[in-house]
Design a protein around this nucleic acid. Structure first.
Length: 799
RNA sequence: GCAGAUAUGGCGGAAUUGGCAUACGCGCAUGAUUCAGGUUCAUGUCCAUGUACUUGGGUGUGGGUUCAAGUCCCACUAUCUGCACCA
């Protein structure tokens, strides 16, 4: 009997589609289960073996849950707006919509060829006007609540192409396309006030089941810190406000540093003694990204502002003011007080510029290095703070500052507001018009969706505006508020917009009058299990939690947190252990694998490749191994005996395997689940036969991973119904354990022998058996005898 | 630089609470089947030493705790992911 995978897979895929096998209703008996995977960006390169790993994993979970009686929602869609499609469209003079449609069709057929159990009736596409209508609607709600606003923000500007570049299009400070230098230029941008939700985004993590590493990465990214804001007077009259997490070290502040972009620098420019030097430094800083600027191993640079001094409020001392690019305009107030004795970066800067280092917390040697340990130090050289601990000093100094109205306790976040504008064509138009009289005015909800107009060229304009700016008929409109002349916003939304709420739309994808009907949202939310990549932890995952929380606050969704459980998969690397990429020539196309080995083999291999949450390298030899395993299962048909029960010799093994596979699937340990099934199959071969009942159980266990082959065998063997209509096999805990176990016998921790014991044997009896077995080695005084039940005996002797 | 993670045979990886390191697969070796190659089946396979028994070493590096450490603690090193306009 030959395993003809192409015929088998085609047959069952057709059957599943025709019978709408995986269609999900919004009401049903049994508990609901909503399993979600990150929907793909339909790129021109097609589906990647990196996609199929998490998709297969959740498909396994979904199939198992259905067999356990759950009403399962397992949907798929396309996150189809975005830069790569737009760039392809520009190069090839085709409409991005055409490119998107083509790519989506390729993706869909690739996904279907892998036998995923998606409910295809619920497919969503973020570029569909009936979808982005609601993306725009959410933006309008945010605007109405004051969470969307415009401000000046720096963007990457190519001096030659004269257009705004994405960070990805900038390589080592030059434009990726033309090689011309890229500078940072201020532009008016739409922003979303995610910082208003910073506390909630941290605090609500307590209620969800996310891996610790995901939680801590989000918490650190949001970066909540408690400190103080302090006003420093200057000799030019203006005050500088600094943010510090260490107000206790105020007596040790021996200089100040402003970010090169700080507004006071420009204001003071005429009165400085070294304006040329300052301007030159600002120009240099503008050419660097934030990351380059904060690299610690680089030499600290900076310029002292000539002709102005700051005044330390606690001791009245005049201290120099520098500008340096290690201070970022976007964090805190863009200005710091520098305490070189107790901050590493300040210490290095002070050494380089020969500035005084004043120790105010005893415990280290500040001549050698900054002393940053807050737990043990005691305040010194600090007047009324002397002798206090760091914690006491913080409270005391803040009270002192508050009394004099020169400072206050302040909570700060590293999280920045979300830059929501893109000067691009292929995104959702922002539904706002600008009226000379009324300012920024939202469109009324009846006018949504605001459709993307047809343009001839998708190239950004010379002024850096989006291609939409060239559509004067579209841009010039009337103000919804006063009816006077107004202009439409020409920026579009980032790709993150559509993906921030897609999981809501799946619950009711055709809903006409809301993001989804309240009944559907109530039934399906929260998502029970969301699997995705670690690389999305601080952006997509955080953004979508933010949007959901906002929608909860305005009563549009019923749950605070959208995802009850989050898991992450590791990347699939090339055969050489490097990231798969065209330039490295190590890309594996899933289509080729399906064609040569079959979808069931690809699925099995990707589940077997290694620990699900770690990266794993591709191995075509490994694929062959999984194919061999499936062939061995297929050939079991020739060895079937008619018993409709587990035979005595295999009973324990059967129960153990069911338990292992059930638990391992649930814990995403697919590799060990498959190993257990391989071991079971080896056992069948060793025995030389398999009973009908044993094979039936194996087919049920293997079905989620290899659905086509198991369905075919099920039919061939004449079992009733389809595999998916049957229940998940059960195991008996009592039958998982054999009567005897082998334990290890150690002397001084070294393995010397093993011993077979009965489960119910007494400790004393086992110890005496052990000593008998080890008697040649017990050549000294026995100091200690350790027995760990059913595991080990360790006898400690001294000569 | 900051943040999060990872490190086990020739390779992918396994190992409830600290309790027999290397399950399962690949590769390799030997044998059977075959005209032959492939397939399939069986056996073996951490390293060193040795006649089989054995003995010693061994989970990135260096220390520590413990009767016992891949697992816990301290200090390193290397690699991977993200860093806000790629998604």
């Amino acid at each position: 009997m030959k395993y003809d995978f192409s015929a088998i897979e085609a047959k069952w895929q057709k059957y599943w589609v025709e019978h709408k096998l995986y269609r999900t209703e919004n009401t049903a008996d049994g508990e609901k289960f909503y399993g979600l995977i990150e929907f793909p960006f339909p790129s021109g390169r097609g589906l990647h073996v990196g996609h199929t790993r998490p998709y297969t994993a959740m498909d396994v979970i979904a199939r198992k849950k259905r067999m356990e009686g759950y009403n399962v929602l397992f949907p798929m869609g396309y996150d189809a707006f975005g830069l790569p499609t737009e760039n392809y469209a520009i190069q090839n003079h085709v409409h991005p919509r055409t490119v998107t449609e083509r790519n989506v069709n390729v993706f869909r057929s690739q996904l279907q060829a892998l036998g995923y159990s998606f409910d295809w009736d619920r497919e969503v596409n973020t570029t569909d006007p009936s979808y982005y209508k609601w993306t725009q609607w959410i933006f309008l709600q945010m605007f109405k609540k004051g969470l969307a606003y415009k401000t000046q923000m720096p963007v990457n500007w190519c001096t030659s192409c004269k257009c705004v570049l994405a960070n990805e299009e900038v390589a080592e400070g030059v434009c990726e396309r033309c090689g011309a230098p890229v500078i940072r230029k201020e532009r008016s941008q739409w922003m979303l006030k995610i910082t208003a939700y910073a506390d909630r985004l941290i605090d609500d993590l307590e209620d969800v089941n996310f891996p610790e590493r995901v939680k801590s990465q989000q918490i650190n990214w949001i970066g909540r810190s408690y400190g103080a804001q302090v006003k420093f007077a200057t000799t030019l009259g203006d005050e500088i406000t600094v943010y510090t997490t260490r107000p206790d070290t105020l007596f040790g502040a021996t200089y100040m540093v402003l970010s090169p972009e700080h507004t006071l620098v420009a204001k003071w420019m005429d009165r400085l003694t070294n304006p040329e030097e300052v301007k030159a430094y600002q120009a240099m800083a503008a050419a660097k990204s934030d990351m380059e600027r904060t690299e610690l191993n680089k030499d600290k640079t900076g310029v002292c502002l000539g002709g102005v001094k700051g005044i330390n409020p606690v001791n009245g001392k005049e201290i120099p003011i520098f500008i340096s690019d290690y201070v970022l305009a976007t964090y805190g107030t863009g200005a710091i007080m520098a305490v070189p004795a107790h901050d590493t970066r300040d210490w290095e800067f002070a050494r380089k510029f020969d500035l005084p280092i004043v120790e105010v917390i005893a415990g280290g040697n500040v001549e050698e290095a900054a002393f940053t340990d807050v737990a043990t130090g005691t305040l010194v050289n600090s007047d009324f703070l002397n002798g206090m601990s760091v914690a006491e000093a913080k409270t005391a100094i803040i009270n002192w500052l508050v009394e004099r109205r020169i400072g206050e306790a302040k909570k700060n976040f590293k999280l920045r507001d979300w830059v929501f504008s893109r000067q691009r064509y292929w995104g959702e138009p922002i539904p706002i018009v600008k009226c000379e009289k009324c300012g920024y005015v939202p469109l009324s909800e009846e006018e949504l969706p605001l459709l993307l107009p047809e343009v001839e060229s998708y190239e950004p304009t010379d002024t850096g505006e989006s291609p939409l700016a060239k559509m004067t008929d579209w841009v010039n409109t009337t103000c919804p508020c006063c009816g006077g002349p107004a202009k439409r916003e020409t920026d579009t939304m980032p790709q993150w917009a559509g993906s921030s709420w897609y999981f809501l739309r799946y619950t009711d994808p055709d809903c006409k009058d809301a993001i989804a009907s309240p009944e559907a949202l109530r039934y399906w939310l929260p998502v029970d299990w969301y699997n995705g990549g670690m690389e999305h932890t601080t952006l997509h995952l955080l953004y979508s939690r933010f949007w959901n929380r906002f929608l909860y606050d305005i009563g549009a969704v019923p749950v605070k947190e959208p995802y009850q459980k989050r898991t992450s998969h590791g990347m699939i690397l090339g055969e050489n252990g490097e990231k798969m990429s065209k330039s490295r020539g190590n890309v594996i196309n899933p289509d080729d694998i399906v064609k040569e080995f079959g979808a069931d083999t690809l699925r099995t291999y990707e589940m077997f490749i290694g620990a699900f949450d770690l990266a794993a390298s591709w191995s075509t030899e490994g694929v062959r191994g999984c194919r061999k395993f499936l062939e061995r299962v297929f050939k079991l048909q020739e060895m079937v005996t008619p018993e409709d029960e587990y035979r005595k010799v295999l009973e324990t093994k059967m129960h153990q395997t069911i338990r292992k596979v059930s638990q391992d699937y649930e814990n995403l340990k697919f590799n060990t689940a498959i190993a257990a099934m391989m071991a079971l199959v080896n056992e069948f071969y060793r025995v030389g036969s398999v009973s009908r009942k044993e094979l039936q159980t194996l087919l049920l266990l293997l079905n989620p991973v290899a659905p086509h082959m198991t369905e075919e065998m099920w039919e061939e063997l004449g079992f009733s119904g389809r595999v998916y209509q049957n229940s998940w096999p059960e195991y008996d805990e009592a039958k998982c354990a054999s009567d005897t176990v082998e334990i290890a016998l150690q002397v001084n921790g070294k393995l010397r022998a093993t011993l077979n014991i009965r489960r119910d044997q007494e400790k004393e009896e086992i110890l005496s058996l052990a000593k008998e077995a080890l008697k040649d080695r017990l050549t000294g005084t026995i100091v200690k005898e350790i027995y760990v039940p059913l595991k080990i005996v360790n006898i400690v002797i001294r000569p």
